[in-house]
Nucleic acid binder design. Structure first.
Lengths: 101, 101
DNA sequence: AGTTCTTATCGCAAATGTACGATAGGTAAA
DNA sequence: TTTACCTATCGTACATTTGCGATAAGAACT
């Protein structure tokens, strides 16, 4: 990508909203989140069973959701239990609410 | 991308939400939409002045927003006036609202 | 120690996204 | 018709994303 020299700086809210939107911009991740909402919590393996995707692929999506802060995983050896991160979920919710008027 | 043979089919709402989110997943496009919200309408040239981006790049972002249905352009020769497409805007709004509880 | 179970990470391939300059297209006015 | 203006599209380069299989990492049990 030929980029201009300086990176464009946007308002914090704009950056934050775009970051959340980007992570939501894939149907699998939306579906994972919906699943986590309804199931309260679940393990990676459960999700691998739900989607016709490789385990590594599901794990990657979970990683991105975790990086964005939308989910969190707590150890429950040898499994990991993933849940919605309610705090950041509300942050994202508010950003979208404000954006859409 | 080595893909599995069959494409995964998601629920309609999931697909639609992901599509909107994807388009919102870039700070420039968020900023463009915010600008269009406040200015009611504006021309491509105005946006080119606002962002330190090439005219072709801005045009490309506008095209994606148009493809997603979030904006529409009406001819106002030799300029084009871009506005929020309120109908689809409301569709997106509702999808995000429902998603976030 | 080794075994098993679960999940993360690595390395690769292919697709998609982002940005630019250059060029084309379309309209209005000279 | 030529000129000027505004916008879209083309072609290109590089970055990022997506997906897979293979491998590593960690904990619990034998």
């Amino acid at each position: 990508m030929k980029r201009s020299l300086e990176t464009i700086v946007y308002k914090k809210d704009t950056e934050a909203l775009a970051k959340f939107a980007k992570v939501l911009g894939h149907p699998t991740r939306i579906a994972i989140l919906k699943h986590l909402e309804s199931a309260t919590c679940c393990h990676t393996g459960d999700l691998v069973d739900v989607f016709p995707l490789a385990q590594s692929t599901v794990s990657q999506h979970l990683k991105e959701l975790k990086n964005a802060g939308l989910i969190q995983g707590e150890l429950n050896p040898p499994k990991i239990k993933y849940c919605i991160n309610q705090e950041n979920w509300n942050v994202a919710k508010k950003l979208f609410q404000d954006f859409f008027d």
